[in-house]
Nucleic acid binder design. Structure first.
Lengths: 234, 234
DNA sequence: TGTATTTTTCGTGTCGACATGAAAAATATT
DNA sequence: AATATTTTTCATGTCGACACGAAAAATACA
């Protein structure tokens, strides 16, 4: 036995969670390429557990649309269809607006504190030029705003959209010149102020403006047909 | 062996689908009471298959929020929290509006045909006073409108909401005096006409009016604090 | 040499069994 | 009798093994 591979006994039930979290992160960070096959037997060796918990994690991922289960064939990482982009942007914009409005109306003091902390974290990620952190904190920032809106239906929908979006942002951020994340920082600041002031109309306006900004950037990136897109299964 | 219990060999992979569909239907029709425990071993006997496919079906249901998996304890049918109702109505109203607007803008001739067929089916269910059919066809009617909108993000969100709503409608419809379903029929007809005319503004207005109508009815039912609510885990 | 057919490979779908931990039952204690 | 503690029960979490079926490889055929 190789000591470094020895497994300390796992807590009962932690198996699925481990596989689920790990795979989800790898999918959202594009470390697992869209369309690439996922072999249960391989994961068996990698995670050092039987196929059952791995299978259950994959089923959960399939339920969220992050993975596609082909009957009697290996499941694959959900492909990204560029034709879906306009629809995605439409839904994202709407959810930005709705959640920000509700946050302005319903937030508590603690909510605002959490939101401000996350925005601080985003500022630090921008300063450190840490793309991974930027994308993840940005997601958490908007998710926290949704949570402050106190409607778990919107929260669930929005979180799903934001996750889907993380894969897109992976492309997106690579097209940035350095001043754009700073621009987002300003828009986020505006957004927080509007929420704090409980100004629903302003929150809505800024959310829409923020969404449009993002949409414009990504679409500009896509229509610029960079060569680097070639190797990605889209 | 008892002949009637002999099992014809199932198609490979049909096990999970059978359990999933059956349980989902029973949950949405309230044949399985919210909060009641679901025993995997029982289902083993009932469906005549091993625990594995049953387990996988339950995981899928948990992913949709129809079932709640308590670690190391039996999973239970997702409880209905009346405190969530206002949030649910808010989300439902928004999705009614968005999907109907998009349908007006993007529908094809075939879409309209499907929608009309479903409305016809609803009319027949109302005529036959078949509550089960009414609820199910009503759901399919609105789902078809969303599909005509050509945005699968909205479709997914909306379908989930509509499913959640089916459980609520089970209570709801029992409070109807007979003329209300007919009223909905008229509103549906208006809605279809607005979509056909590609009149986005009218579609939005009618969708909102329809949603408000439903919300008003359910809330009136709830605030009337009927005795029958007592035996339901809410 | 290119296409059709058979064989092999190999990953998924399903199964029965064991381990574990939480609730229930039984026992002990005040 | 009421509460605390131990024992038992039993459903879930995990495992290894087999069966099935689809893709790939190997063979036969034109």
């Amino acid at each position: 036995m190789i000591p470094s591979l020895e497994q300390t006994k796992r807590r009962r039930g932690s198996g699925v969670a481990t596989v689920y979290d790990t795979l989800k992160r790898e999918i959202l960070e594009l470390r697992l390429r869209p369309g690439s096959p996922i072999d249960e037997t391989n994961l068996t060796e990698r995670f050092g557990m039987s196929r059952t918990p791995i299978r259950e994690a994959l089923i959960k991922l399939a339920g969220e649309g992050l993975v596609l289960a082909l009957p009697n064939r290996s499941t694959i990482v959900a492909p990204i269809d560029l034709l879906d982009l306009p629809q995605f942007f439409d839904a994202l914009t709407l959810m930005y607006r709705v959640t920000t409005r509700l946050a302005a109306a319903n937030h508590t003091a603690e909510d605002l504190l959490t939101i401000r902390e996350l925005q601080q974290g985003y500022a630090e990620a921008v300063a450190a030029r840490d793309i991974s952190d930027m994308i993840e904190v940005n997601r958490d920032f908007h998710s926290a705003i949704a949570a402050a809106g106190r409607n778990h239906y919107y929260c669930d929908m929005f979180d799903r959209l934001l996750d889907e979006g993380r894969r897109l942002l992976r492309f997106y951020y690579s097209s940035f010149n350095d001043d754009l994340p700073a621009l987002f920082l300003d828009e986020h600041e505006e957004m927080v102020r509007a929420i704090e002031a409980r100004d629903v109309a302003a929150s809505d306006r800024i959310a829409k403006q923020h969404a449009d900004q993002i949409v414009r950037q990504i679409q500009a990136y896509i229509t610029s047909d960079r060569r680097e897109n070639g190797d990605m299964t889209l």
